[in-house]
Amino acid sequence: MISLIAALAVDRVIGMENAMPWNLPADLAWFKRNTLNKPVIMGRHTWESIGRPLPGRKNIILSSQPGTDDRVTWVKSVDEAIAACGDVPEIMVIGGGRVYEQFLPKAQKLYLTHIDAEVEGDTHFPDYEPDDWESVFSEFHDADAQNSHSYCFEILERR
C-alpha cells in the first residue's frame, strides 16, 4: 500500500524555501509514529532540507540527478522507488510537492495534518478530489505552549 503523509496549511501550503513555516512538535511526533519502520520516499529537495537519513526507516530518494550519499537509496523513477521498498505492507511518501503529485494517483491512504495557519509558501500539496477519499480518523488539537497553531490529524482512505 502506498501512503502519503503531509502537513498542510491553508491553501495546501506545505513548504517555503525548503522548510515548513510553522513550529508543531506534535506533528513531528505524528510523522515519526506513522513512518517508523517503514520505507520513506522523498525528493532530493526534501532530502536536502532534512540533511540526514531518517533513523529507523529505509530512505529512498527520487531524483533525476541521483546523489552520492550511500546512506540512502537513490532512484530515478516512481517504479524504481516502489521496487526499492521491497515487499512491505506500507510505503510512506513524505514529499515534496512534485513527489506527492507523482504518487497521489497510486496512493491508497493519506495521513494529513491540517494546520490552521495562513502562511506564504512556494510548495503545495497537490489538489485531490475529496469525494474519492473517506475520512477514517480525525483528531483536532488547539494551539498550545509547544505548538504554534491549532491542527487536525486526519487519515483518508481511497474509496
Rank of each mutant, 00 (worst) to 15 (best):
S135G: 11
I14P: 02
E139L: 07
G43K: 03
F31P: 05
C85V: 09
A145G: 08
A26R: 02
E90S: 03
E129Y: 13
W74Q: 04
E48I: 09
N147V: 03
D116W: 13
A6F: 14
S64V: 14
F125W: 09
G67T: 15
L54A: 00
S138K: 12
V119S: 09
G86V: 08
K58R: 13
H141F: 06
C85Q: 03
H141T: 05
V40Q: 05
E134V: 09
L156F: 15
Q65C: 15
I50W: 02
F31L: 05
S138R: 14
L24E: 12
L4P: 02
V40N: 03
A145T: 07
P21M: 02
V13R: 01
V136S: 10
E17T: 02
E157S: 10
H141L: 04
T73P: 06
C85T: 08
D127W: 11
M42A: 04
V99A: 11
E101K: 07
R159K: 10
F125L: 07
Q102W: 12
I155Q: 05
E17N: 05
D131Q: 04
R159S: 10
V136L: 09
P53C: 09
W30K: 09
M92N: 02
L62E: 02
R57M: 02
I94G: 01
D142R: 08
K109R: 10
R12L: 15
S3G: 00
W30L: 10
V99M: 08
A19Y: 15
L24Y: 02
D142P: 12
K38S: 09
H124S: 11
M20C: 01
G86A: 09
D70Q: 11
Q108M: 09
Q108E: 09
P89F: 05
G67I: 14
D127Q: 11
A83I: 12
L36G: 10
E101H: 13
I50L: 15
K109I: 11
E118T: 13
D142Q: 10
A7I: 04
R33N: 15
K32H: 03
N18F: 10
Q146S: 08
I5T: 00
P21D: 00
P55L: 13
K106R: 10
D127V: 13
R159N: 10
D70A: 12
H141V: 06
L112S: 01
P39R: 03
E118G: 13
R71M: 10
M16E: 02
N59V: 15
D131G: 04
K109G: 03
E120H: 13
V40R: 01
R44P: 01
L112F: 11
V78F: 13
K58W: 09
I5K: 02
V75T: 12
L54C: 03
I155H: 03
G97T: 05
L4G: 02
R12A: 03
E120K: 12
A19T: 10
V72A: 15
E134Q: 11
I14G: 00
K32V: 07
A29W: 06
E120T: 12
G97Y: 03
C85Y: 05
S150F: 05
T123G: 01
P55Q: 14
A117Q: 10
E120Q: 11
L36H: 12
F137T: 10
P53I: 10
K109M: 10
S63D: 01
S77F: 14
V88P: 09
E129P: 09
V99L: 10
I115T: 06
P25A: 04
L8E: 04
V40G: 01
K58H: 12
P89V: 07
S77D: 15
N37Y: 10
G51N: 11
A81S: 03
G51M: 07
D122R: 01
T73W: 10
R52F: 11
E134N: 09
D131L: 07
A84Q: 06
I82V: 09
D69L: 09
Q108D: 07
P89M: 14
E118N: 15
I50V: 14
I61L: 12
V78S: 12
P105E: 09
A117K: 04
F103M: 07
I5Y: 01
D69K: 06
G97Q: 11
G67Y: 12
K58F: 11
D122M: 01
P130G: 12
L8S: 03
Q102L: 14
E157W: 08
D70L: 14
P66L: 13
M42R: 02
L36A: 03
C85I: 14
S64C: 14
S138Q: 14
Y111N: 00
T46S: 15
P25H: 06
D116Q: 15
H149T: 08
Y111V: 10
W47Y: 15
G86Q: 11
T68I: 11
T113V: 07
P39G: 04
P130K: 12
A84N: 09
P126L: 04
R57L: 00
S150R: 09
I82E: 05
S135P: 09
V72I: 13
V78P: 15
I115S: 04
A6C: 14
H124N: 08
E139H: 08
V78N: 11
A9I: 07
A143K: 09
R98D: 04
N59Q: 09
N59M: 06
G97R: 05
Y128Q: 03
F153S: 03
H45R: 05
V13E: 04
L24R: 00
E154Y: 12
E118S: 11
W30A: 05
A7S: 03
A7C: 13
P105A: 12
V72G: 13
K109P: 05
W74I: 10
F153A: 03
P53E: 13
K106G: 08
T46C: 06
A26G: 03
S77R: 14
A19S: 08
P53D: 10
V13W: 04
W133P: 01
D122Q: 01
F153Q: 03
K32S: 05
E118L: 11
E17C: 03
W133H: 00
R12W: 08
W30S: 14
H124A: 14
T46A: 02
F140N: 13
P21C: 15
A29Q: 12
H141C: 04
E120S: 09
K76H: 11
A145W: 06
H124V: 11
R98S: 05
Q146N: 08
P53R: 13
R159G: 12
R33E: 14
P55E: 11
E139M: 06
E90W: 02
M20W: 00
N59F: 06
V13C: 05
S77A: 08
W74A: 06
F31A: 00
D142I: 09
R159H: 09
T73D: 08
A19M: 09
F31Y: 06
S77K: 14
K32Q: 05
S135E: 12
S150G: 06
D11L: 04
S63E: 01
P126N: 05
N34F: 06
Q65P: 04
V75G: 04
R158P: 04
E129H: 10
S150H: 06
E17G: 13
K106V: 11
A84I: 10
A29L: 11
D87F: 12
H124E: 05
D79Y: 10
D70F: 12
P55M: 14
F153V: 05
N59Y: 02
S49Y: 02
E120P: 04
V136A: 10
T68Y: 15
S3T: 00
E48A: 14
G15L: 02
M92W: 05
K76P: 10
L36M: 10
Y111K: 00
A29H: 04
S148K: 00
S150W: 08
D87C: 06
S148N: 01
A145H: 11
F153G: 03
P53W: 14
E17R: 01
I60C: 10
E80L: 09
I61T: 02
K109A: 07
L8H: 03
D11E: 15
D87S: 08
E157A: 09
A26F: 08
S77V: 08
